[in-house]
């Protein structure tokens, strides 16, 4: 005790001071996050139980807003669209992104230029993406027209005017915009894999695809978590793409929840409906997020 007390005595005030400084340094960030996200979210949830119309008023009416929300066909379509978009964009982004990354990992020529090109769509806003794809998918000048003018007269590809498949038209644009980034992340993950693992797998005579699935992918866990966060945040904020590409049409076939909330608030001046819609979305995200966060971080205490 006596021998160590001298350095400890001089160190402790510094340590203490540093810890305090560290806490102070993090305060602005935590405050903004707490005030805005938690405060705003709780406020929204509370007022979703009120009869607010043009202005938020605290006259509570229980679950009426939710009844109306779920009996609205527009909301039903919006939820269905978000589900389709979410599931498809999750699967396709991951698969296409990984395959492209594996392709690029073969040390192709001009790799850097290729990578930049793949990232360019991501550097465009969803608004521009939506407009460009609205045009490409337009039957009168887009893909359909080009294929037909090449001689295949019966070719038909007109997703944006077909209520059944309009959400897939939006999905294509969304994938075009986002897959390049996923590819780059995956590529970074693949590059992080030790070359010796490939050598060992080859010596053992394991085919390449098996090496990818059973050895490489499990090792890229961290990268997959990052990509999942990015894809998920892209799904929940699906709004601008729809506005630019279809404005929710034809009819209400490509409505999404974020647009429903926006319309309720600004067009039909029915704040209560907007609050209820936001709350449902929050709830949906939490239902997905909590089990995942639990699996990912709940067992952390063990190590």
């Amino acid at each position: 005790m006596i021998t160590t007390s001298t350095p400890a005595a001089t160190q402790r005030p510094i340590r203490l001071f540093r810890n305090k400084a560290a806490k102070i340094a993090a305060i602005p960030m935590i405050l903004t996050a707490v005030v805005v996200f938690m405060g705003g979210t709780i406020w929204t949830i509370v007022f979703s139980f009120t009869k607010s119309k043009l202005l938020p008023k605290a006259n509570f009416i229980g679950l009426d807003q939710y009844d109306r929300l779920w009996s609205s066909s527009k909301w039903g379509i919006a939820i269905e669209n978000l589900l389709i978009y979410g599931i498809c964009s999750l699967i396709f982004s991951l698969v296409i992104g990984f395959v492209l990354a594996a392709l690029l990992d073969q040390k192709i020529r001009f790799e850097n230029t290729f990578r930049s090109i793949m990232l360019y769509p991501f550097a465009l806003s969803f608004i521009v993406t939506g407009l460009v794809w609205q045009w490409i998918l337009n039957p009168d000048f887009g893909i359909q027209k080009v294929v037909r003018s090449m001689g295949w007269e019966s070719f038909s590809f007109d997703p944006l005017n077909n209520q059944e498949i309009v959400i897939y038209g939006i999905l294509i644009a969304g994938l075009w915009q986002g897959t390049g980034l996923i590819m780059c992340l995956m590529l970074a993950g693949l590059r992080g894999i030790d070359e010796d693992i490939w050598k060992a797998a080859r010596v053992d005579g394991i085919p390449a695809w098996k090496t990818y699935i059973f050895i490489v992918i499990p090792m890229m866990r961290a990268v997959f978590v990052t990509t999942l966060v990015i894809i998920a945040s892209g799904i929940v904020k699906l709004y601008d793409l729809v506005v630019a590409q279809t404005s929710g049409g034809p009819g209400i076939a490509s409505e999404v929840p974020a647009k429903y909330v926006y319309d309720a608030m600004f067009l039909s001046q029915n704040l209560g409906q907007g609050f209820a819609g936001s709350t449902m979305m929050l709830l949906a995200v939490l239902i997905v997020l909590i089990p995942w966060a639990y699996m990912e971080f709940g067992g952390r205490q063990r190590d």
Binding site: G40, T41, T44, T279
Partner: peptide, 14 residues
């Protein structure tokens, strides 16, 4: 994880 919350959730208060 706040990045994964839908922005519409805080749109109206803001």
């Amino acid at each position: 994880s706040t990045k994964m919350l839908p922005p519409v959730g805080v749109l109206i208060p803001i």
